[in-house]
Design a protein around this nucleic acid. Structure first.
Lengths: 218, 218
DNA sequence: ACCTGAACACCGTTCAAGT
DNA sequence: ACCTGAACACCGTTCAAGT
């Protein structure tokens, strides 16, 4: 028989801190991620975190880059098909970590995102598009996946647990004779009549780039 | 001669609170907008604000809707031209109030946004597009202007005052032989070689919708 | 009706002290 | 090297008290 060492608890460390922070943000939202809460979750005091992480802002950067690393890079596909695939995967990862899209912009890219960005740009460079259209295409696709997911999640995440309830309240608050189109639109969503337009618009952008290139390069 | 009434100060009121809050967010960012700071700015105590506004969240909603009211609605144009015009104006307003795009999503639409949304949907309904494409088009255009502006501003606003400086630090931190495309891309931005792709992609989306409609409705 | 002071339960972070 | 307690300068908001 021996006395239990009170310090048998798993030691802290960037990796574990970041992982726990991500899990916490996934379940309760970034809004409720505080250094104090995170420390409690880990079984340490707040200030212990600062031995591994310079600030909350650095922690957020590390979290975003960790998630960026989850996006599997395509291989062996034709450039435009690979771009499409990569974009669809990005959306999946965004949806898995709904707090990421907002932070994505505010943080300077870390190593994983740097690789991701380089891959995207290389694919555009190899796509056959003119350099200028490749440049615009890179932004167009990035904006699409970001804007689309934000819109999609903004409604779900920030508006509380039940988007349907919010949507219903919203249309109930509208005088039906003045806002017929709004009401019809929201009802289409509630009825699940319309499929997601994410891939439709993505293809529309990619096809449009090709068409512009063909028109400009004749 | 008379004693100056200490209560000659302009009384509070939703309108004035919201206006001051917007001005404060415009100049210093939403990050530094606190109820306490706002009260100080207005010359009142914090708790006075709560006589006019239920919570900080309500205040943010009011601010967003006030800004939504700044977007001038088009009139007398053909539907698709009006949609285009409205989208360009939305981007201008977003740029004038860089804190708006992020909040836009988290808040349930107030009266001004309700009118804006109804207008957009009516224009799409009148555009001749099939109901389904009109539905998708509404989202596509909204996502584009939101995602594009967020990307554009995310870099400028959140990364500190000098985006060029950040960009330079970014490429300096990259091993040049491994990230040639990233470096080239950022350099294109720094050199101002590429014009904004906002309208280019917007047209690409609008044209693509028309083309899809023509193909589907033959 | 509108304003306010004290108080509560939170934040992120500094700094000096422990082992 | 890593952990911690006390302290600082902040938050949003409740509630009872003033006019």
């Amino acid at each position: 028989m021996y006395v239990v060492n009170p310090d048998e608890r798993i030691p802290l460390g960037r990796q574990r801190i970041v992982a726990t922070a991500i899990a916490l943000a996934d379940t309760d939202g970034v809004g409720s991620l505080s250094m104090r809460r995170l420390a409690r979750e880990l079984g340490f005091e707040v200030m212990s975190l600062y031995n591994h992480v310079a600030s909350k802002d650095e922690l957020l950067s590390l979290m975003v880059d960790e998630v960026a690393g989850e996006i599997r890079l395509p291989e062996g596909e034709a450039p435009l098909a690979a771009i499409r695939e990569l974009t669809v995967r990005t959306r999946e990862i965004y949806r898995r970590h709904p707090w990421v899209p907002t932070l994505w912009l505010r943080q300077v890219p870390g190593p994983n995102r740097q690789v991701l960005m380089e891959t995207q740009l290389r694919l555009f460079a190899d796509s056959g598009l003119s350099p200028e259209l490749a440049h615009h295409g890179f932004h167009a696709v990035g904006n699409h996946v970001l804007g689309y997911t934000l819109q999609e999640l903004g409604m779900e995440v920030a508006m509380g647990a039940d988007p349907d309830h919010v949507a219903r309240d919203f249309i109930d608050g509208l005088p039906d004779d003045e806002f017929p189109h709004s009401i019809a639109h929201v009802q289409q969503h509630l009825a699940g009549e319309t499929s997601s337009s994410f891939e439709l618009v993505l293809d529309l952008i990619l096809d449009g780039l090709l068409r512009l290139d063909a028109a400009g390069g004749e």
